[in-house]
Design a binder for these strands. Structure first.
Lengths: 189, 189, 189, 189
DNA sequence: AATGAATGAGCATTCATTCAT
DNA sequence: GATGAATGAATGCTCATTCAT
């Protein structure tokens, strides 16, 4: 048995991945408040395993979305280079952010809920997306395309809220309202 | 005994008011999904009394907010007369709507939740506020102050979402974002 | 005011009758375990009135069926005279008893439930119908048409049980089974 | 740890058995509609455990009686071989069925209640006992010992009803009445 | 006598969380 | 590390019963 620990670690990692995949799927179906048991069942593991890997629900939610959040955050730099203007970059970045939110049923609502159990997720967004967004906003402000009175956090929170969809307010409505909000930001310049 | 029935009715009305007051207070603390028991306890009545007066939770939530909703709806006509322009009227009306929402912790979230148990409340908003808002939007469109592609319902839903406040996104933030959204609507003209 | 008390008594009697009529109707629809409020509502009185007139549910159930029970009891003597044989009289009397039971949804089940709250009803049946049935049984025994080992109470209880109908065991089934039981009684002669 | 899973399964099985035993005991005392809490308390488990093992009340009731029902059903074939005549076999089988019923307080009433929550139990009886009884009835009919107009279901329902015992109508009464009913069936031949 | 508002015990059911194996 | 059986607090809701008017 050359590397028994490594084998075990690999197995543990696989378990962790299975849980994340299952959680992501269940979150789409039932929202981030889905029963833990449903996730465990879908992942083919026991509920205890979920609690071991993700002590709180926020840990799980954060982990599920971390990759996408990181990708989204990294996008800002590239868009700033590629786009004709800072505001164009901001617009495209927001599009990506909205696309992320509206495909996660209940995520917007979860972020807006103020649920103390979701602090980690909140912190994650704060630490990665807010700086990315701030960079774009600063660039816009420097270019005179945007008033300076809007913080990245507030804007993202507002966008998150606008992406809380429902039966009579769907993804397209959300996207349109976010676009309108951005237009409002620009007109303040 | 001149009006024995009147006495009883008066007592019942007082009870009903106590329940409404308690519910309003509890809703602020815990949101509209607060346990019925908590409301009953705060009102100093049994749970049965709550169910007698308000068979469903939506009945209670609707009753708690009906007066303010009606007042808000009635405001639109007056503002349209008094204001310098339709858009100014819309702005002031939205201010009042926002003021209503941000003082009701969790109401925005409740409206956005799509909870089937809150259909009545949803319907109440639809029936009274949406027409009021639509009147203002039409006037704005006629005056060329607004693009015609935004429905009253979508706008109100978006405003409702923007008013979901939290620890780092307070009433002032919400008001600012709503104002920005309105600015965006105008710029579409 | 010659007879103010009489007037009041008459009114009280009318109320009592209204409750009885309503209870009878509700019992047919929902069975004898129907909520008190439903009966009160149908009678157009307050629940307190029901409790005043019929302190226990059994009081109400008994009162509702007393008339029919008395009629049924009185029938035995007449049938004994009119019928060709004591057993023929018994058969016809049982038919009447069954007819009474199967039209009262849930009455058979109530009688068989052993519910201590229905003691009064039980006693009423015991005091009026059992003697009537016993008379018939005795006559049959004297005529050699029946074995002597069946008591009136047991027979009636059995008949009552056989009349507990349901989705796949309807009135006709009940009647057939009662007839078969009687045939069994006779064959024991 | 040779069979860690087996240990857990064994423990779970013991819990399940404890619940079944407790339920059987409580059913005797209070009938099959007894509160779940009472069963849980008697079994020394939490209510959740009951729901885990028996999601619906009918599942629990069915499980409690399944073994005896199966045994009873299997009995018919053997009796048919061993008995002198089909009717003798039927008689002995019915004796066994009655013995089963009268020791389960409230089971007869439950079967007769038409309670939609007990459909499973109803179906269990239908699927196992009715065919067993039908076999016996057919044999009797072929032997000319019985009229053909009685279905197995109706007969068993009637027997079930006759076995609803109470303070003044005990097991012996029930047995006697069932015997009488059978005698009536035979006399129809 | 009649009313019916109010009470609250009682029950079913869900689900987050723990912990022995 | 993984399991999942067990727990029980939490909550919605019903309805018999009381009692002030």
């Amino acid at each position: 048995m050359p590397e028994p620990v490594g084998v075990r670690q690999a197995q543990a990692e696989r378990t962790r991945s299975a849980v994340l995949a299952a959680a992501a799927a269940v979150f789409v179906d039932q929202g981030v408040q889905a029963p833990v048991r449903d996730i465990a069942e879908r992942a083919g593991v026991g509920v205890g395993t979920i609690y071991r890997n993700f002590p709180t629900r926020a840990d799980l939610v954060s982990a599920v979305y971390r990759h996408q959040i990181d990708t989204c955050a990294a996008l800002s730099a590239r868009l700033l280079e590629e786009s004709a203007s800072p505001f164009a970059a901001l617009t495209r970045w927001v599009d990506a952010f909205v696309e992320f939110l509206v495909t996660k049923h209940g995520l917007g609502a979860a972020l807006g809920s103020g649920d103390p159990g979701l602090e980690n997720l909140h912190a994650l967004m704060l630490d990665t997306l807010v700086p990315a967004c701030a960079t774009l906003l600063d660039a816009c402000a420097d270019a005179g395309e945007l008033g300076a009175d809007i913080t990245a956090y507030t804007l993202m929170r507002a966008i998150g809220n606008l992406c809380i969809t429902g039966p009579d307010y769907d993804r397209d409505d959300a996207k349109r309202m976010v676009a309108t909000l951005l237009a409002g930001c620009r007109s303040a310049a």
